[in-house]
């Protein structure tokens, strides 16, 4: 299974245990998760995870998160010297943790000062004007956009009507997110000249064509990989010659399949 890129689960400066379980629940047309950025922290990630993921032989996109501009700068600086890292994706939009007090643009600016690697800003669909956010992060030095992260949702159990996730609300992903994501891609593609990695509920070659038509230059797979770990090969076959997608998995969670249609390249994220 060839792939053109592999996006890691978000890495933070320190190790994080994440949120208490239950952390996942299926809903009618998607799922909620409240993983809470469980990860080994940047040092253990660079020492143990990166070499393992490098064995896939595909470009690695590392997703970076934190709780302050300093955190983002810290992790980016640490990754700047890692030759195997092709792109840094800034997770500016995790619905499952308290975010940083700074604006998305300030976080991008802090990361920009810490690395020369290409920076993709991953934005939330839960904003009135995502195009405005896109313009702000572009001005702050982002080289591309990843659209979109999950949107906050709540599921209750049928008897006690209590939240099914221990944390209460979680991030909603899967097919239900697709029209929301398409609207964000469509709006941002008209607002900025940056390449866009589209994601949210992609399950088929048809869905990929929707995202490319809306203005994405690449498409990423998330939730579908839980039901079908080989979805990238299947989707590539469904697309035929239209574009050439690929997919990767890691021991971390998965979040995308991306392609630059101009170069007929598709990246899939872990």
């Amino acid at each position: 299974m060839q792939l053109d890129a592999f996006v890691t689960k978000t890495v933070t400066p320190q190790a994080r245990e994440g949120n208490p379980p239950p952390r996942v629940v299926e809903t009618e047309s998607g799922m909620l998760n409240s993983i809470g950025l469980q990860n080994p922290g940047i040092d253990a990630f660079a020492r143990e995870s990166l070499p393992r993921i490098s064995e896939l032989g595909v470009p690695i996109w590392v997703s970076v998160g934190g709780f302050s501009a300093h955190d983002y700068a810290d992790v980016c600086e640490r990754l700047d010297g890692e030759a195997s890292v092709e792109v840094i994706e800034l997770n500016l939009s995790c619905p499952n943790v308290e975010g940083a007090p700074e604006t998305a643009a300030e976080l991008v600016a802090a990361a920009r000062a810490a690395t020369t690697k290409p920076l993709y800003a991953k934005l939330s669909p839960a904003t009135w004007d995502v195009a405005e956010s896109a313009r702000a992060v572009a001005a702050a030095g982002a080289d591309g956009l990843s659209l979109v992260n999950t949107i906050r949702g709540l599921a209750l159990d049928a008897t006690a009507r209590r939240p099914q996730l221990a944390r209460g609300a979680g991030g909603y992903s899967g097919p239900a997110l697709r029209p929301i994501a398409l609207a964000c891609v469509h709006a941002c593609a008209r607002a900025v000249a940056l390449p866009i990695v589209g994601m949210g509920g992609v399950t088929s070659g048809d869905d990929v064509l929707d995202f490319l038509a809306a203005g994405a230059s690449a498409v990423a797979l998330g939730t579908i990989l839980f039901a079908d770990p080989f979805a990238a090969s299947r989707i590539r076959a469904e697309l035929g010659d239209a574009v050439l997608p690929a997919l990767a998995l890691s021991e971390h969670e998965i979040h995308g399949l991306v392609g630059h249609s101009a170069s007929r390249r598709v990246v899939s994220a872990e």
Binding site: E17, G18, P21, R23, V24, V25, I35, L225, P229, H252
Partner: peptide
């Protein structure tokens, strides 16, 4: 048992606390 999404280690959805770690 735990609620699972992927079953193959990718999603971190199925954690249980063992010796104080998820």
């Amino acid at each position: 048992e735990a609620r699972m999404a992927c079953g193959y280690g990718a999603c971190y959805g199925c954690v249980v606390e063992i010796d104080g770690r998820y």
